[in-house]
Each structure stands twice: as structure tokens, then as C-alpha cells.
Amino acid sequence: MRKIILLFTCLFGISAFSQIKVLKNESVVEIGKDNSVGLYKKDDKFTINYQDLNTANLNTFRSFSFQNLNKDVSGLYELIINGFIDSPSSNIILELPNDIIELHFEKNYGQPTVQFIQYINKNRKYVGKSQFLNKKQIDKIFGRQNGKSAMYEKPSSTNAGSAGASGSKDKKTKK
């Protein structure tokens, strides 16, 4: 009888302490990176990471994220490139779901540059600033040099199969 009680106690103890779950490993894809600024994609969410130059501790990294709903990644890239061509008189202010981002354009050594200024949680008290970036660096970050800019509009793998199948049926019926 003691052995049976001991066995049940051990089995109950094992099941009570098994609280660790194995989660699905979701990968983050690097679109592009230059020095301490990078653009990453996870599903349809894009994140820009940067080293915050506004803090005394140079090991502080910050990020801001947004969905690519209306080709927003391409739109941000075009906005920055247009700012290099025709420098705006003041900062361009962008409102994201969690943050406010300002694009600050300035000429450094005669070359147009841009800096991301982040108001964290839309609070003007907490500010993060990236390094100044030139056009070549922006092209690298947005994947224009390595061909990864094609990943902006790439559908997720779950939707790709059904869209491809219906697209091929449409072509057959038209012929």
C-alpha cells in the first residue's frame, strides 16, 4: 500500500511541475543593416533597430515597429530619398501605433543625411536618436543593395499557396 501511495505521489509531483512549454520559434529576417541601424521583418511587421546616441550609455539600443499595410516600408524609403533630393524646411513627423518618429534632415560635410528621432510611447520626455545616415546607408538598410527589398510585399507562406492556386486557375479560364 505504501508503494502505491509513493508511486501516485511521484506521478502527481511530476505532472504538477511540468510548466515549461515549447513555443514555436518564429524567425526574424534581416532586410538590411549598416553600423548600428538595421531593418528587420517578422511576418508583416517591420522593425528598425538603432543605437541610441541620446543616452550617456552607448550600449542602449532602441527600436520602433510598424505594419506594412499600405506599402508603408516603400513609402518610408521614398519619403527619406525625396528628403535627400529636396531637403524639407522642418522635421517630417510620422505617427506610428506606439511611437512618434521624426525624420531630421541635415547636411553633414555637404552631404544630405537623415536621423531618426523617436519619441518613445508618444511621450516627448523620452527621446531616442539614431546616427545620421546618408543615401548609401539608407539603401543598404532598406535592402536596396542586396535585393532584399523584394521581401517588403512578399505574402506570408500560409496565404501564398491559396493565392497562387487561384491565380493559375484564372489564367487557364482566360485562354
Rank of each mutant, 00 (worst) to 15 (best):
G147F: 08
V114I: 05
R124N: 15
K125C: 08
N98H: 10
Y152H: 07
H104W: 09
K125M: 14
K148L: 12
Y126L: 10
N134A: 07
G143E: 10
G164T: 04
D99W: 13
K140V: 08
S157R: 07
G167F: 08
M151F: 15
E106N: 15
A165R: 08
N134S: 11
Y119Q: 13
Q137D: 03
E106T: 08
L133M: 09
F116P: 01
S156A: 09
R144E: 15
I141E: 05
Y126H: 12
A165H: 07
I117C: 10
K129Y: 03
Y152C: 01
N146H: 02
F132A: 07
S162P: 01
Q115W: 03
E153D: 15
Q137P: 01
P112T: 04
N98D: 13
I141K: 05
Y152G: 09
P112N: 13
Y109T: 08
N123F: 10
H104C: 11
N134T: 01
G161Y: 11
S157D: 06
K107S: 06
Q115H: 05
V114C: 07
Q111D: 13
K107T: 00
R144S: 07
I100M: 13
G161D: 11
S168P: 05
I120G: 00
Q115S: 13
F116D: 04
Q111C: 07
S149Y: 14
G147Y: 10
N98K: 14
Y109P: 03
Q131M: 01
G164N: 15
K107W: 00
M151G: 04
S162R: 05
N146Q: 01
M151D: 15
N159K: 14
Y109Q: 14
G143P: 14
Y126F: 14
F116V: 01
G128Q: 06
N146M: 02
L103K: 07
